[in-house]
C-alpha cells in the first residue's frame, strides 16, 4: 500500500506541474511590433558579422534589414513572406537555420531519428541482457553476439 501511495504522489505532483505549465506558461504573449520584429530578425544572419543574427548586430546592414522587417510587418506581411523575399535577394545563407524543405530536411530529421532509433536499439539491448541475466545458463547466442559487436563498434 505504501508503495503505491508513493507512486500516486509522484504522478500527482507531475500532473500539477504539467497543468500549471499549461495554464501559465502558455499565457497569450502580447507580441508588439518590436517583439515580432526581433523574432523575425533573430532568424536572419547578419551577413557582415561573424555568427550574429540581424537581431543582435549593431551593424548598419542589420539596422537596414530590421527597418525593412518592421515596415513590412506593419504593412501586414507575414514573417514567412519577409523571409522568402530576403532569400530571393541574398540566398539561403541569410537564414540562420536551414529551411525545413529540400536538403535542409536532412539536418532537421537526422538528430531526432538518431535518438529514436538509438533508443529502440538500447532498449532492445537492455531487455535482451535482462533476459540473459534471468536464464541461469548462458548460451552463446549468435544474435546477441552480433548485437554486442554492433554496440561495440558504433
Amino acid at each position: 500500500m505504501r508503495r503505491r501511495l508513493g507512486w500516486i504522489a509522484i504522478a500527482w505532483l507531475v500532473a500539477i506541474c504539467a497543468l500549471a505549465l499549461a495554464v501559465y506558461g502558455s499565457a497569450p504573449v502580447h507580441a508588439g511590433l518590436d517583439e515580432r520584429t526581433t523574432a523575425v530578425a533573430s532568424q536572419l544572419r547578419c551577413l557582415v558579422c561573424q555568427g550574429e543574427s540581424v537581431a543582435d548586430s549593431p551593424s548598419g546592414f542589420a539596422a537596414g534589414i530590421r527597418a525593412l522587417i518592421r515596415r513590412d510587418l506593419r504593412a501586414g506581411e507575414t514573417p514567412a513572406q519577409i523571409e522568402s523575399f530576403l532569400v530571393s535577394r541574398y540566398g539561403n545563407r541569410i537564414l540562420m537555420a536551414p529551411q525545413s524543405g529540400g536538403i535542409g530536411q536532412i539536418a532537421w530529421l537526422a538528430p531526432p531519428l538518431l535518438v529514436l532509433g538509438g533508443l529502440g536499439f538500447v532498449l532492445t539491448l537492455i531487455f535482451d541482457w535482462r533476459n540473459r541475466g534471468r536464464t541461469p545458463v548462458l548460451v552463446a547466442d549468435s544474435y546477441l553476439e552480433r548485437v554486442r559487436a554492433e554496440l561495440a563498434e558504433e
Partner: peptide, 10 residues
Amino acid sequence: GSQLSVGAPY
C-alpha cells in the same frame, strides 16, 4: 553548390 548557414536557431 549552394550556400547556407546553420546557426543558433537550428
